[in-house]
Design a protein around this nucleic acid. Structure first.
Lengths: 226, 226
DNA sequence: TACCAACTTGGTAGTCACTACCATGGTGGT
DNA sequence: ACCACCATGGTAGTGACTACCAAGTTGGTA
């Protein structure tokens, strides 16, 4: 029904949503997450606290808003079937990361700089860090679900879940490192190094471009943001 | 200074602490975590809400209270130096898990049953799950710190962090599986299986007893609980 | 025994995240 | 011009959590 009802309404909706999030991350960075109230964010964005809660169910969601899960899952499904799991999953993660570090155009809630600011908050603030890790846990289950018939019996599903969890842990450590380096290095490269450290150096795929990306642009021109 | 001041005071303190936690986990299991207020827990334990907050800084800590981090770190340091990191860390995790699944004697907040109840809550309740994962993240850093001079330069520290994170992710998946099986299987065995699924079957150490433990008792008689 | 210090507990009031419930005004289609 | 929809705003309330302070108890000491 009413597919994208009218662009004007949803456009405004997305616009205020982005404005709220941009002001939120800015204020959180300036004053600290705990020292900033939702009312502060609302005032900065020129809306009422109610509107903030309408767009972001919790204060933490003002920073998190990870919806690249489907992106990763689709990449894994797309990758052909017989290679080891950790390799397929790791490759999908590195490729998706490349797509996220491109510039976001006129969107203030996209691009490398904003991702860095969000990551710094996620790392330094316990509540955000915890929920970010829980998002990774949800992504872990999404990956297993995406494998579908490949992880049919419980034993295979368990192994897939372990592989996905271990890969995501490596990803998280790589993200932390990347943020500590202020994003100066290329994120996909850091991820690949982390995967190699966890599962052996044979993870560095000689037939791919994930290890030494050209400009940081993802394999697809789309940024993956809605 | 005043080392264990007098046993009577600390004994009472530990006693009320255990009582509060036991009632908390019971109520959370019966009524649900979100549907149970801290005041409910306080009333059930026969104390004031203030006292609950004195002993447990947050409502989540009523379920979490993980203090086996040092246990794991010490085991890793104790293990000799040249074997691959994931193997040393994994072994330490499996061994520590064995110590946790023993019976807790008269302590209602120890033993397999209570651990299972806590785990079920941690898995099903988003807030608890998130904070549990964050505890694992803290343990990850503790492991790296424990390695000390073995992870001196940043690159080695990064690899160690990745290894620890991946091992802990495997541990978490194993814990979930163990809880789903209602603790019928032996926890160290599940952990070993998870590590093998993540890092290859050569993780199953033929020279140890971690894969097929005798009775579930840990290698040391002490339960590790204070 | 009398006294003091430390510790544990309890109460009150307040902040803040978050959630109903309802009112209003602008948007888009008919 | 009418109406359905939707985004926004207000009010009141719950619950976690945090000061700030009061009271009783315990342990050691003069």
């Amino acid at each position: 029904m009413s597919d994208r009802h009218s662009t004007l309404r949803t456009q405004r909706r997305v616009q205020t949503q982005r404005a709220i999030q941009a002001h939120a991350v800015r204020l959180f960075t300036e004053r600290g997450y705990d020292a900033t109230t939702v009312t502060d964010v609302a005032e900065a964005a020129g809306v009422s606290p109610m509107t903030v809660y309408r767009h972001f169910p919790t204060k933490e969601d003002l920073v998190l808003v990870d919806q690249n899960g489907r992106l990763v899952a689709e990449r894994i499904v797309a990758s052909a079937g017989t290679r080891p799991l950790v390799r397929r999953i790791g490759r999908a993660l590195a490729d998706s990361a490349a797509a996220l570090t491109g510039d976001g155009g006129d969107d203030p809630t996209a691009g490398r700089g904003f991702l860095l600011a969000r990551l710094r908050l996620m790392i330094s603030t316990p509540a955000l860090r915890a929920r970010h890790l829980d998002n990774h846990y949800a992504l872990q289950q999404a990956i297993v679900d995406a494998l579908g018939d490949e992880a049919a019996d419980p034993e295979a599903a368990f192994r897939a879940k372990v592989a996905a969890g271990a890969c995501l842990a490596a990803l998280h450590t790589a993200l932390v490192r990347w943020a500590e380096e202020d994003g100066r290095t290329e994120l996909p490269g850091v991820i690949t190094k982390a995967l190699a450290a966890a599962f052996g150096d044979d993870m560095a795929d000689p037939s791919g471009d994930a290890g030494t990306p050209d400009t940081g642009r993802g394999p697809s021109g789309d940024t993956g943001r809605r």
